[in-house]
Write a protein that binds this DNA or RNA. Structure first.
Lengths: 103, 103
DNA sequence: TTAATATGCAACCATTTGGTTGCATGTCAA
DNA sequence: TTGACATGCAACCAAATGGTTGCATATTAA
């Protein structure tokens, strides 16, 4: 899970996920065309995303296709973010208490 | 939004959010007791979380209370993660197409 | 078979990050 | 008022990060 958070921390990597969300299964060179950096830099970012299990790859001849894997993002949404969402009302209540203590 | 993702990337900072989720309004020294690092290091992490608007502070005398702000986490869940959640069925469909191409 | 294409690997570099220590400032309480 | 306590600020450091260049390898197509 830490790997997923760290992978999502970089805007380039989120852009890569966006690109794959728009068109899944793109090859490295295809993904490079939208990025303002070298192919090797993009490959490093893709490796980090793959390490976090955010995408899977399929070697097809000399090309390598990249497929989005939405499962880790869902896990984060459910197991981690959900906890804070449920805390919204609590937080508002805390704010109220805080303001009352101001008096 | 980039600041929120980067803030969430560090496990220490997620732990701080967890701690505030368990007990909101804690002071710097209180938060430090659970952390295996110096007070100054914790203060830096808290500054990053505050910069990302993930928490607000309230100076009370010589102490400073820290309050969780769940709004940015909700925004990420709704505007960014939701997009990929909705793509789950699409991704499965893509996988099916991919496997069909294997023949 | 050979040239072009797609990717992989490694060394290298600048900047950012996450931590430290040391000291300064402000506030409470005896 | 003065000492203890809570926080702020700044310099410094090692390691991680994000990028580059150069070259190697593997596959396709003429």
């Amino acid at each position: 899970m830490d790997a997923v958070f760290r992978a999502l921390a970089d805007p380039t990597r989120r852009q890569l996920l966006d690109s794959l969300h728009a068109r899944n299964g793109q090859t490295l060179n295809a993904l490079c065309e939208e990025m303002a950096m070298t192919r090797q830099a993009v490959a490093k970012h893709l490796a980090i995303l793959e390490e976090a299990n955010l995408l899977t790859t399929l070697r097809r001849g000399r090309e390598k296709e990249h497929y989005l894997n939405p499962v880790p993002i869902n896990e984060i949404a459910e197991r981690w973010i959900g906890k804070f969402e449920r805390g919204r009302l609590t937080a508002l209540s805390d704010l109220k208490k805080r303001l009352e203590r101001e008096d």
